[in-house]
Design a protein around this nucleic acid. Sequence first.
DNA 1: GGATATCATGTCAGATGTGGCATAGAGTTT
DNA 2: AAACTCTATGCCACATCTGACATGATATCC
Lengths: 105, 105
Amino acid sequence: MEKPKKDRLARAGWRLGDAADFLELSPEEAAFIELKLALADYLREIRLRNEWTQAQVARRLGSSQSRVAKMEAADASVSLDLLVRSLLMLGASRGEVGRVIAAAA
Amino acid sequence: MEKPKKDRLARAGWRLGDAADFLELSPEEAAFIELKLALADYLREIRLRNEWTQAQVARRLGSSQSRVAKMEAADASVSLDLLVRSLLMLGASRGEVGRVIAAAA
DNA sequence: GGATATCATGTCAGATGTGGCATAGAGTTT
DNA sequence: AAACTCTATGCCACATCTGACATGATATCC
């Protein structure tokens, strides 16, 4: 895994496996996390495209600004459920979500 | 929503919203649940294709037979996280998962 | 029709996720 | 440089998820 992505994950609170060494990630764990990163990026993209603040998005989702920040950061405390439900609530289609997930890294 | 799908959801423990009337599902909620149903079906498909029992799959995933059954039934107690992680662990690629999610209902 | 194998469903203690609050950082405006 | 706006991070009470166990349901074989 490249350095910038590693740093981003470390910042987001991922202490993978628990060996704390990203290189020991199984391919499945890596794919899962990258998939979440892609969705997090897409969430931010939608927000910026619509010129919304995190607080505005939070109100739409019935959540808080801090959680939206964590979603965009792909924080370890954010589930795939929350990410996907949020994207759908912000207007993304099921097809769009699928394509983001399928997209090659 | 068609009757058979309704029944399947009712069986799986979904008491949507809480009005207990599926017709009151928001489009986003509906899309989210159908997305989970599609992944659940795909999980079963992979299992049968490989001629595995639920118990064997459970061992591969480090889980239990009952949870695998609930996954395939898209039980309300099963998260999207668990479904996607399980699919990846059973050999599905990120692209495959994305395509299943994107697939039209 | 008992034994065996597989899948389904209920329950629950412990693990993980969530909204919300407080506050810090970073950029703008006046 | 104070006030303001937006985003990031730490924390926690409460909610939801999860593996495991027990048991029920159904099918097949002998």
